[in-house]
């Protein structure tokens, strides 16, 4: 009898190999978060003993947890893959985008422009993403092979049906695909897999003491780029990340979970979704759908 993790692993590896076989210039979107780390490990498994046959692409907002960048660089070195960085700071400096100002300002939305520019510049025709359908309601509608038009837009009403694992990667010039091998994984599956395979993840995911502030009921990491609102104060708390994104909008979980077993127990019994603390999702009821339509991850 196969376990659910064996089936999910087999499906993900199949999808990653389809990407490598069906496209000429694929890449792997690497954020430094746990999902992209699992995806990187699956890619290694898919092609071992050959090196992963496509580069990693990091869209860098410049507002990172320092741990993420350290981890990214050591993983890329260990896997022997090429890293391509799309810099949001550069998009700001060259006037492609204008930085949000004031309380709650975030570079999250600006990433989309940098991402699209990076795709054009490198002529990527397909990018692996770590998105999962259980993360968010718009993502629940996402395909494994998701077509983006020349403007990188997603059209959720006009998606190709996917049957029996037959993925149709045909497209016109200038269009590209976003490919999601972890579509059927849940947050708990990801952690169970990390434990089973002994995969390294950044220390951010484990309980640690950090300078934080609270806003709209969420605990956020303080960093010099954050502008506090009147009445908000910085204090120290024991927290961990459930998701890792731009430091300005990634909610932290107050937690003592310091081992993988602790994390698995915590995730199995939690009453709040993983993205519940993401300020970028809370901007409106369809915030994720709107960003995805515009070309977001």
């Amino acid at each position: 009898m196969l376990t659910h993790l064996q089936e999910l692993e087999a499906e993900a590896i199949y999808v990653i190999r389809e990407l490598a076989a069906q496209f000429e210039r694929p890449g792997l979107l690497f954020s430094g978060g746990k999902d992209s780390i699992v995806m990187a490990n699956l890619a290694r498994t898919a092609f071992y003993p050959q090196a992963i046959p496509f580069p990693f692409v990091h869209i860098d907002t410049g507002h990172n947890f320092p741990e993420t960048i350290e981890f990214r660089d050591s993983l890329v070195k260990r896997l022997g893959v090429k890293l391509i960085v799309g810099s949001v700071q550069e998009s700001i400096d060259t006037g492609r985008v204008r930085e949000e100002k004031g309380i709650g300002a975030s570079r999250n939305r600006l990433q989309t422009v940098t991402l699209i520019d990076t795709i054009r510049k490198n002529k990527f025709d397909a990018l692996l993403g770590g998105g999962r359908r259980d993360e968010e309601k718009a993502r629940a509608k996402e395909r494994f092979f998701s077509l983006r038009n020349v403007f990188s837009e997603w059209d959720p009403k006009n998606q190709r049906p996917e049957l029996f694992g037959l993925y149709n990667g045909h497209k016109d010039r200038g269009e590209h695909f976003r490919v999601f091998p972890l579509s059927n994984w849940t947050e708990l599956d990801v952690w169970q897999y990390i434990k089973e395979k002994g995969i390294d993840v950044p220390s951010l995911y484990f309980s640690h003491e950090r300078e934080v502030y609270e806003r709209d009921g969420a605990v956020l990491a303080w960093s010099p780029v954050v502008q506090l609102a009147p009445g908000e104060t910085v204090k120290k708390m024991r927290v961990r990340c459930r998701t890792v994104g731009d430091i300005t909008c990634t909610g932290l979980t107050v937690s003592d979970a310091s081992t993988l077993d602790d994390i698995i127990r915590e995730v199995a019994s939690t009453h709040v979704t993983e993205r519940g603390g993401r300020a970028d999702d809370r901007r409106s009821e369809t915030a994720m759908e709107d960003r995805k339509k515009a070309g977001y991850f």
Partner: peptide, 18 residues
């Protein structure tokens, strides 16, 4: 989950739940 589905009270295509 999609805006059009919520507005029109319909389901557009297959949704997956876990």
């Amino acid at each position: 989950g999609l805006r059009a589905e919520r507005e029109q009270g319909i389901t557009i295509d297959v949704a997956y739940r876990y």
